[in-house]
């Protein structure tokens, strides 16, 4: 609880260091729901994807990865994007992160169009992208270090929370997959982003580690106010984590349907066996099954052509 109180201060301190005009974020869009002890989605859009189309044009090939996509993500919302592989999930995330420029349409954050990557939008990648040449401690400090605003207590706290204290001086390759993924999460949280963009972060982990990581992620999210866009092709993972699950079609990626997951929080693994969970899972499975089949056919066709 005390952490939460000190939090807004630190946040605005950090923000003042960078120049991208997110200071006003503190004022308008946050709305703490005191009963719950954490912020709830306010209905106001933090991320607004407006008619997004992305076409890849490598040497004449014309791949429409995403087509006319509209999506709004509210402040403090946890949204999962669920779709078969190759349907354009990563592309959407890369447009929000600012790595790619949309071919058509735009992505707005707080009403302003995205212009390149920014520390307020943290990213966790599908393959672990801890810097292999830096120790866990150096990785964790990386973001604040860029602004000369390292807060050692905070780093220590985060490492402890994720069970990584004592590994500060280890290099990433010395850690297990689950630990590496936790360390990447620490690196992100040390930077205190408003929006966390996570691209299939747990897909390389074994089932048990994955479950623990999901619980840890929910704990972290519920403790502090953050908006999460979480990409996955795992139906159960999407429902377990999300407020809303956005189901995508096979390529060109469009939104097929949106499932509002009304399961009480805080959630833990016992949810996985509940009646409600099964219902949601059944519905999502039905939605995604045909798309997965189509995606597989597409893949096969591409391989034959190549």
């Amino acid at each position: 609880m005390s952490k939460q109180e000190s939090n807004p201060e630190r946040r605005s301190q950090n923000r003042n260091q960078d120049t991208n005009g997110y200071e006003d974020m503190e004022n308008g869009h946050r709305d703490l729901d005191e009963d719950d002890g954490r912020a709830r989605a306010t209905g106001e859009a933090l991320v607004e994807i407006d008619d997004l189309t992305k076409i890849y044009d490598p040497d004449g090939a014309h791949v429409t990865a995403v087509e006319n996509m509209d999506l709004e993500i509210g402040d403090n919302e946890f949204v999962c994007v669920l779709g078969p592989s190759g349907c354009g999930k990563s592309t959407v995330m890369e447009c929000i992160a600012g790595y790619l420029e949309p071919t058509e349409g735009e992505v707005l954050i707080n009403g302003d169009p995205v212009d390149g990557p920014d520390p307020s939008r943290g990213v966790v990648f599908q393959s672990n992208r801890l810097f292999p040449w830096k120790t866990i401690g150096q990785n964790a400090r990386f973001g604040p270090q860029m602004r000369n605003a390292v807060d050692d207590d905070r780093i220590r706290e985060l490492l402890e929370e994720t069970g990584l204290s004592g590994f500060e001086d280890s290099y990433p390759h010395e850690l297990s997959g689950g630990m590496q993924q936790r360390a990447e999460l620490v690196r992100l949280l040390a930077n205190d982003p408003d929006i966390m963009l996570m691209d299939e972060p747990f897909s390389g982990l074994d089932a048990m580690t994955k479950e623990l990581m999901q619980e840890m992620l929910l704990d972290i999210w519920e403790e502090e106010d953050r908006t999460v866009l979480f990409i996955t092709h795992d139906v159960a993972e999407a429902i377990f984590l999300a407020d809303r699950v956005v189901v995508m079609t096979a390529r060109p990626g469009q939104i097929k349907d949106v499932i509002d997951v009304d399961i009480d929080r805080p959630r833990d693994s016992s949810v996985l066996t509940s009646e409600a969970f099964n219902e949601y899972q059944k519905r999502a499975n039905e939605l995604i099954h045909d798309e997965a089949e189509r995606a597989m056919e597409q893949k096969q066709q591409e391989t034959q052509e190549a």
Binding site: W133, F142, G143, M146
Partner: peptide, 23 residues
């Protein structure tokens, strides 16, 4: 993606060079 990660963590271009490209 390493450069992207650095940029998303707030690294300027020269910092990306110093902390990602060089090592």
């Amino acid at each position: 993606e390493y450069s992207r990660a650095a940029q998303s963590l707030g690294a300027a271009d020269w910092q990306t060079f110093r902390h990602v490209i060089y090592p």
